[in-house]
């Protein structure tokens, strides 16, 4: 009797790229729920729109590149990119903003560089930064927490009208406001002390009002990702550690003009970035020590951009800058091979 010959191993673990990507999506649910609670329907509409555009763009690019559609659409990587970008967009962002961002992410940052696994830069962050640079006014129009949990909640129809028609029953300026990090930055520029600024109503217990719960949601999901080993623990550890060290040093030097480390850790996109953005394995460092260094680099850069750069938050730029450094970090952080003399 004759048999088929295939090389070993002959048994494989039940795992797939699709499973890894779906876990990332599940882990985002608590954070997304908090976002919807505080910022309303717009979050869900952005997510739906971004997902649809991402899948469409992915399908077109795959067929142009002659790749099997079902196989690659089934890896959920486009959906992950869409969600990562969508939650970073202002909840009432006009539809075209989402579309342009997703196209920049999927078409330019992902497929023009060779598709899944070959992109040197985090696609969602390329999309985000492209929008931030090209449309700063739309990108800074974040809502004041007003969502379903609040008394002045905006209805689904109103939200749809604002996103797709540009007008709603209320003028958009009445709904938007500066984010907590914006407030901090602006008022520090006006010479106020951190303590004075913290009395502003946009701030809650630790960080921004409402925002701190969103952060808690993403932290819960992120810890689950680390627990299931979907994300490497070294990256968030390095990132939060790097940022904490920087913030602590400056806070100790001058607590009047530098926000405390816990505020930095809990504000803006730090927790989300630490567990969901910087951990994108394709664009991050891959060695154990390298991941720590990579994470720490992102954390330090976030602080530098926030404190001394031109943007209130710096997660996207910090991640992209460290993406460039990842291959070099890998080269110099190879683990000691079994039986190799300690160097």
């Amino acid at each position: 009797m004759r048999f088929k010959t295939v090389t070993s191993p002959h048994i494989l673990q039940h795992t797939s790229v699709g499973q890894v990507m779906r876990r990332v999506l599940y882990a985002m649910i608590p954070g997304i729920a908090a976002l919807v609670w505080f910022f309303g329907w717009g979050v869900l509409i952005n997510l739906a729109l971004a997902t649809a555009v991402a899948l469409g763009a992915e399908a077109v690019m795959l067929s142009i590149r002659g790749k099997p559609l079902a196989l690659h659409l089934g890896d959920y990587s486009a959906v992950v990119t869409a969600w990562l970008l969508a939650v970073a967009l202002p909840p009432l962002a006009p539809w075209w903003l989402t579309v342009i961002g997703v196209l920049a992410a999927i078409v330019v940052a992902k497929h023009l560089y060779g598709g899944l696994g070959y992109n040197p830069f985090n696609p969602a962050m390329i999309g985000y930064v492209a929008l931030l640079i090209s449309f700063p006014r739309e990108m800074s129009a974040w809502l004041i927490p007003h969502g379903m949990g609040q008394s002045h909640a905006l209805g689904l129809l109103d939200t749809l009208q604002i996103i797709f028609g540009g007008v709603g029953s209320l003028p958009i300026d009445a709904l938007t406001g500066a984010t907590p990090l914006d407030v901090l930055r602006t008022k520090l520029g006006l010479g106020q002390t951190v303590a004075e600024i913290r009395n502003s109503p946009v701030f809650g217990i630790v960080a921004g009002q409402g925002w701190e719960w969103v952060t808690a949601g993403f932290l819960a999901g992120g810890l689950w990702l680390v627990y299931t080993r979907t994300a490497a623990w070294q990256i968030p550890a390095g990132l939060l550690g790097g940022l904490a060290v920087m913030a602590t040093v400056f806070y100790l030097i001058d607590p009047q003009h530098y926000a405390p480390p816990w505020f930095h850790l809990w504000s803006g996109a730090v927790i989300f970035g630490a567990f969901f953005i910087a951990t994108d394995p394709v664009t991050a460092s891959t060695t154990p020590r390298g991941r720590l260094i990579y994470g720490a680099g992102v954390g330090i850069l976030i602080y530098v951009i926030r404190g001394f750069g031109g943007y209130p938050d710096g997660v996207a730029f910090a991640v992209l800058l460290m993406n460039i450094a990842a291959p070099t970090i890998d080269l110099y952080t190879r683990p000691r091979v079994f039986g190799e003399k300690p160097s």
């Binding site: 494989l12 797939s16 790229v17 099997p68 899944l116 696994g117 080993r229 394995p281």
Partner: peptide
């Protein structure tokens, strides 16, 4: 046997590194 599954690109997740008994990359 494991079903023969189509090969996808490497996403550098490092799962292989975590299980390598020779501590290779």
């Amino acid at each position: 046997l494991a079903p023969e599954l189509p090969v996808l690109p490497c996403i550098r997740c490092g799962a292989c590194m975590d299980v390598c008994p020779a501590n290779l990359l």
